[in-house]
């Protein structure tokens, strides 16, 4: 397993008319293999930009990202990506979607078939292999996205608001699935979310990010993700420790929001 090392990332977007936007400024952190990092912050704090840099979809204007010994310069299959929605291939069925990665790599067909069946069982979609994407609910589609990402056995899984489009109940179920997958596979996960509760519940480490310029404001080490595997989720989310942390982070974000409003007003 490989550690993720982010060193002095700067990201400046040139704007055709107006001053350049400083999306990220001097972002540095080390993430040991097997951690689950959640990124939280008001809009414009650069959390999705950071995720896209980790994925290799964007090249930072300064700084480096390394995974193990490898410098990241573009997308690669050692870093899998799960998008909010719309990234599944409608022209393929569930099985073919999950098998996409191995197929691109020219993997053995029989082996792939076995692996796909395994993964579908893992994400709770056994028997759905020949269904079309549009026949599935939003939650099931995200299960397919997770399975597709796991099929290439990546070191790091990057998730861009993976549960953002789901209803509250499905969302809680899927949070449980993500925690289970994390425990079972031991993968490094970086997850961007808008929900404070989700960031706290899933994050084994949590960055609260701040805007203008985008940066890491607070770096929390959290106990909930590890206990969350044994404790009933509703009870955990209602525990005093959880609520205290939630209020602390919420007020932090509120302060930032007010500062932004002050800037604009």
């Amino acid at each position: 397993m490989k550690d993720l090392k982010v060193a002095g990332i700067d990201m400046v977007y040139a704007v055709p008319k107006g001053s350049p936007v400083h999306a990220l400024s001097d972002v540095s952190f080390d993430l040991e293999a097997g951690r689950l990092l959640t990124l939280l912050g008001p809009s414009g704090c650069g959390k999705t930009t950071l995720l896209n840099i980790l994925a290799g979809f964007l090249a930072p204007t300064g700084g480096t990202v390394t995974l193990g010994d490898d410098l990241i310069t573009g997308p690669g299959q050692e870093r899998g990506m799960v998008f909010q929605q719309g990234a599944l291939f409608e022209w393929l069925n569930v099985e073919q979607n999950v098998a996409f990665g191995p197929k691109m790599n020219g993997a053995d067909k029989a082996e792939t078939k076995e692996k796909v069946e395994d993964l579908l069982r893992t994400v709770g979609l056994q028997g759905f292999g020949d269904k079309r994407i549009y026949e599935l609910s939003g939650g099931m589609q995200q299960r397919v996205a997770l399975a597709r990402c796991l099929a290439n056995d990546p070191d790091v899984i990057l998730m861009d608001e993976p549960l953002g489009a789901l209803d509250a109940l499905t969302r809680e179920k899927m949070q449980g699935l993500i925690l289970d997958l994390w425990k079972d596979t031991g993968k490094t996960i970086v997850l961007v979310t808008h929900s404070v509760e989700e960031a706290l519940y899933l994050g084994d480490r949590l960055f609260v990010m701040a805007p203008r310029p985008g940066r890491i404001e607070r770096d929390y080490e959290l106990p909930f993700a590890r206990t969350g595997l044994e404790v009933e989720p509703r009870a955990l989310k209602a525990s005093p420790e959880f609520i205290d942390k939630r209020e602390e982070i919420l007020s932090l974000i509120w302060e930032m929001e007010e500062e932004i409003m002050g800037h604009e007003g």
């Binding site: 994925a55 979809f57 573009g74 997308p75 690669g76 299959q77 870093r79 899998g80 990506m81 998008f83 909010q84 719309g86 990234a87 599944l88 291939f89 996409f100 990665g101 691109m104 790599n105 597709r148 990402c149 099929a151 290439n152």
Partner: peptide
């Protein structure tokens, strides 16, 4: 959708495979 193209590259697809398969 850009997400589809990015997903394909992340899954190890080449440019030709992105064109042909996505």
């Amino acid at each position: 959708n850009l997400s589809k193209v990015r997903a394909a590259y992340s899954l190890g697809a080449s440019k030709w495979q992105v064109l042909r398969r996505v």
